[in-house]
Design a protein around this nucleic acid. Structure first.
Lengths: 203, 203
DNA sequence: TCGCGTATTGACCAATCGGACAATGAATGA
DNA sequence: TCATTCATTGTCCGATTGGTCAATACGCGA
């Protein structure tokens, strides 16, 4: 039953969505022209029609993965917290919660990350996404660290932001592989305590 | 040229080594009966002879990956440092250095990690390896944290060890994907500073 | 109403995969 | 010395993959 049906740009999005669903269940390896076509209820020839090469579909899928995984959204509730370190701690909690609720996206992120280590294009895009994610934390970090560090040690906002990202991704690595055993509460408490200690006395 | 040549157990090891070399270059996907056979200069039929299923070869390869990646070896030099937090900091530096020198193993670790999220057997083995790695840090953490936490906050040794693991793996995630841009020195300094702040006054 | 362009299909192809298996040659014990 | 054992090879097979392409059905402008 060929013919025109959906507006052009929607088709691509529909296909990527199908690919995303497949990838969430079976990983990048499971994303095949035919599995995606089946999920989208299209012929696999059509997938090739819109994405000339499979790599282009995988590339388009990366966009969605990064958008849903490596994007930091500071909620209103968090933004209202006056004490900066506490705000950072709340943001950390929010991210860990998000990871706990839906770990599937993070797995895809790591799969792409492994790909990116060898693929120049993928690497740059993931690097940029990580940098954006870090930058969001850096804004908070700058408010937390006055020009003169409290204890004489030099903790730059940049480095603090990187540590925050490590705390998030490291949590995923450890907790997702062994959800029953890992003590999320204690982890979060320790992380927040470390951050709290870094700040000058609360206003 | 069939016939007997190498003692039985050596063959398996030789094959796994070949598989490891292949995997370091091309990832798990690149590990194929034929590529491994070529690297080991054997026929691919022989690989099947020793590992009845390809999964068993992949499983055996995981052992090597975990042994070379998620294994914490406390060197003599580090062990000699008297001040506990400083010792932990040195250990952190050692691990980051190790990752910088050879990042390839870590990529394989993450590939297996992504596999493990869905494969029960793989998951348990990676989880156990991570637990061992954490335990090594926990020993140090316990020496650092007296029964009564210094600042009233409850940072358990377990949680501190988990944070240390996060700092290592998080470093890999961020630095390996963008080696030129990431400031390793500042990161290490910040991490060490955070740890230092946690300890009671140095003896 | 009739082409025209194009979105869509399904059949087809070569390559590659994991795995099965008969054939073979070397070492070993009697 | 010879038969037995088994490590080793290469061929073969079915399944799956990414990709090509002719055929086709549908919407739209004339």
């Amino acid at each position: 039953m060929p013919g025109r049906k959906a507006p052009e740009e929607t088709r691509r999005e529909q296909i990527v969505s199908a690919a995303y669903e497949v990838a969430l269940r079976t990983g990048i390896d499971g994303v095949t022209l035919r599995t995606v076509a089946a999920k989208a209820k299209l012929s696999h020839g059509l997938i090739v029609f819109y994405f000339k090469q499979k790599d282009q579909l995988i590339g388009a899928l990366l966009d969605r993965v990064l958008a849903t995984t490596a994007m930091l959204h500071v909620s209103q509730d968090v933004a209202r917290i006056p004490h900066a370190p506490e705000r950072l701690g709340a943001l950390l909690r929010q991210e860990l919660d998000r990871l706990s609720r839906d770990p599937r996206g993070m797995r895809l992120f790591f799969e792409y990350w492994a790909l990116g280590v060898r693929q120049g294009v993928t690497r740059r895009r993931i690097g940029a996404a990580l940098e954006r994610y870090r930058a969001a934390f850096r804004t908070l970090a700058e408010e937390m660290l006055p020009t003169a560090p409290p204890n004489g040690t030099d903790v730059t906002p940049d480095a603090l932001a990187a540590v925050a990202v490590s705390l998030v991704s490291g949590y995923a690595v450890q907790a997702m592989i062994d959800p029953g055993h890992f003590d999320t509460g204690a982890y979060l408490a320790a992380a927040q305590s470390l951050i709290e200690r870094l700040a000058p006395a609360p206003a």
